[in-house]
């Protein structure tokens, strides 16, 4: 994975596979760390499954007996000096959290978060996604449930709506993380667009 947004895509796909109808993607700054937390209301895991989930040899899939999504996310956090945590309760949901050393040279860039979120919406528009961004500078929030409420009978996957969401997220990233994360592809530093 080349950017944190691709890990986010992978982890949200796990939530969807677990039957989630609501997924919260939360990205926030605390001191010198960037936290990424994905929480869902999917079917959750029992204690044994939870213990084995950090192993690359665990997967819920049948096509192959190796699952790399969570181990890769964990490795990306740890290589930047951060930590990884997973909490889950059966029939309640799962939360995966990683922290990333903002100034670590080994921290992957946040990347094109707006591409991750719009791809998720287009693929599974009935799931509600909430995106929360927060830094010491500012905070941002978008909930596709609220977007759908405004749209009424117009579908959220209409190209113009998707473009609005894409730009909305870009602006959110710029206001919240501009000057905090120094990156090119995450929508920061494209003020003239």
């Amino acid at each position: 994975m080349q950017e944190l947004s691709l890990h986010i895509l992978d982890l949200v796909r796990n939530s969807i596979a677990a039957g989630a109808t609501k997924v919260i993607i939360s990205i926030y700054q605390k001191g010198n760390f960037l936290y990424i937390s994905i929480s869902d209301n999917g079917k959750g895991m029992d204690k044994d499954t939870l213990r084995s989930v950090e192993s690359p040899f665990m997967t819920s899939r049948n096509t192959r007996k190796v699952g790399l999504g969570i181990p890769l996310f964990k490795a990306a956090a740890e290589q930047s000096g951060g930590t990884f945590e997973i909490e889950s309760a059966e029939n309640v949901g799962t939360r995966v959290t990683g922290s990333f050393g903002i100034d670590s040279i080994d921290r992957q860039p946040l990347g094109e978060l707006y591409e991750t979120v719009t791809a998720l919406i287009i693929s599974d528009p009935d799931i509600n996604y909430e995106l929360r961004l927060e830094s010491t500078k500012d905070a941002y929030r978008m909930d596709t449930k609220e977007v759908k409420d405004v749209l009424g009978e117009v579908h959220i996957t209409e190209p113009e709506v998707m473009e609005w969401i894409r730009e909305h997220i870009k602006e959110g990233i710029r206001t919240v993380f501009g000057g905090v994360l120094n990156e090119v592809n995450s929508g920061i530093g494209r003020n003239q667009e």
């Binding site: 977007v147 405004v150 749209l151 009424g152 117009v154 113009e160 709506v161 609005w164």
Partner: peptide, 9 residues
């Protein structure tokens, strides 16, 4: 967003 909705409708 509301303007987009009205147009799309």
């Amino acid at each position: 967003l509301e303007e987009i909705r009205n147009r799309m409708r």
